[in-house]
Design a protein around this nucleic acid. Structure first.
Length: 419
RNA sequence: GUGGGUGUAGUUCAACGGUAGAGCACCGGAUUGUGGUUCCGGGCGUUGUGGGUUCAAAUCCCAUCAUCCACCCCA
């Protein structure tokens, strides 16, 4: 019988790590409160059609990375590979457009993609994201970006850059795709085999190919910015105006492309400058046709998503603090059977009063219990032996400075709460 | 899906094809009523798994699984 291990591309978050996750999640929730985004929690699996229709049948995510399965009645589901489509599905299904204070949503949770694992990329990974649904106003674009910026800044991160672009709407994006095809056609043979495929499927992808020869050819390719129609251009300018007003630094990078089909207009990425190959901390953009694709009314939206794993890698890289690990405040040291029973009563009372207390029934000697108290990192030891018990007293020892005093058992909670 | 590196104790790593070891961590004791330092004691672990070569394999070969890095993709 072989020992079981975590599935490939997944991992356990152990206690010495989980406090970091809690720290980052709490920070995210605080920023959400500041921007008045409220949490939405959707199922971890959906009808697979939701993703096929929105993310795109030809996207890598749908084509080869989805965990699809059939249930007992033959329905085809998928473990969600991303968070936006489910949120929009729920938004439509529950008529949130009609409910007050419900258009700005955030979510947290695991996503699943069958990809080859590497640094910063896992098969089950944890995303945080926000969606602002129902407005075309470019202020919403800027606010979503500001949210992301404030979140990263709040954690203390410095080694990142914000890149923004406008990839056009369904009208002008086509013109641009055609222009790109025209531009690359004479150089077709010089492009890598991937790029030749990309040129058919998604010509914009050729622009950020990493192959040297492709890069050189792409250097003088037409820029999306020259093909934007009036609306898109105006929108892009407004977004930048708002970002400037918010004093959020950014660079315009006409080469950033989002990989999911539903994106249009504003696209942006927060890229870490000293992570490995998987260095996109947060990616987001506008999706003005997504709701329609999912069978709802024509309804615009904008949002972003980020991965916690990369966030933690980045914070560790910058040696940023994650707050304190959980530790009990008090350790009970009891000696003898009677004192043990009395001690158990005491720790129950302490816990009821919100004082976190530890006790190890396997250790009986004073030495072993004191060592354990020290190792656990508690502030105080409460020492109760027969001598004290007879007098209704207990010893309260401060493990920081070694000072100890004898107090009445009835005064324990008061004495500890004072500190 | 492609390429390269790596799999030995909880962990970090040793061991020219010839008896599997050390640091850290952990547990106990010195101190049967006082922690951190110190000292003493405590290691049979499917050498990832399965085959093969060999008198002999942790070591060489093949496969497989896992992991890391990169491509790709993206968070």
């Amino acid at each position: 019988m072989s020992r079981y291990k975590v599935p490939r591309g997944t991992f356990d978050i152990l206690p010495d790590q989980s406090y970091k996750w809690q720290f980052v999640i709490n920070a995210f929730r605080e920023v959400a409160r500041g921007f008045n985004y409220r949490e939405i929690i959707t199922p971890i699996f959906e009808k697979s059609g939701i993703f096929e229709r929105s993310v795109g049948e030809t996207s890598d995510i749908v084509e080869k990375e989805m965990y699809k399965f059939e249930d007992k009645k033959g329905r085809i589901f998928a473990l969600r590979p991303e968070g936006t489509a489910p949120v929009v599905r729920s938004f439509i299904e529950n008529g949130l457009m009609l409910k007050p204070n419900s258009s700005k949503l955030y979510y947290l949770g695991p996503m699943f993609r069958y990809d080859r694992p590497q640094k910063g990329r896992y098969r089950q990974f944890y995303q945080y994201g926000i969606e602002n649904i129902g407005t075309m106003n470019p202020y919403a674009d800027a606010e979503v970006i500001a949210f992301a910026y404030m979140f990263l800044s709040k954690l203390g991160l410095k080694n990142f850059v914000l890149q923004i672009n406008n990839i056009g709407c369904k009208n002008c994006a086509k013109d641009y795709d055609n222009a790109l095809k025209e531009y690359f056609k004479p150089n077709l043979d010089a492009l890598c085999s991937d790029c030749r495929k990309r040129l058919e499927k998604n010509p914009k992808r050729v622009l950020d190919c990493k192959v040297k020869s492709c890069k050189e050819i792409a250097r003088d390719a037409p820029s999306m910015l020259d093909y934007l129609d009036d609306d898109c251009r105006a929108n892009f300018e407004k977004v930048q105006e708002y970002l400037n007003a918010m004093e959020i630094p950014y660079i315009v990078n006409p080469k950033i492309v989002r990989g999911l089909d539903y994106y249009s207009q504003t696209a942006f990425e927060f890229v870490d400058t000293n992570l490995g190959a998987q260095n996109t901390l947060i990616g987001g953009g506008r999706y003005d046709t997504l709701a329609e694709q999912l069978g709802g009314k024509n309804m615009p939206g904008i949002g972003f998503a980020g991965g916690f794993e990369r966030l933690l890698l980045s914070m560790e890289e910058e040696k940023l603090p994650f707050g304190l690990q959980q530790k009990p405040k008090v350790y009970l040291v009891s000696l003898g059977d009677e004192a043990r029973i009395a001690g158990i009563k005491i720790i129950m009372e302490l816990r009821e009063n919100g004082i976190s207390t530890e006790f190890d029934p396997d250790k009986t000697s004073m030495n072993a219990q004191m060592k354990a108290a020290n190792k656990t990192g508690t502030e105080f030891a409460l020492i109760l032996g027969e001598n004290e018990l007879i007098k209704n007293k207990i010893i309260l020892k401060d493990l920081g400075n070694g000072e100890q005093k004898v107090i009445n058992i009835s005064d324990i909670i008061m004495s500890i709460k004072d500190k």
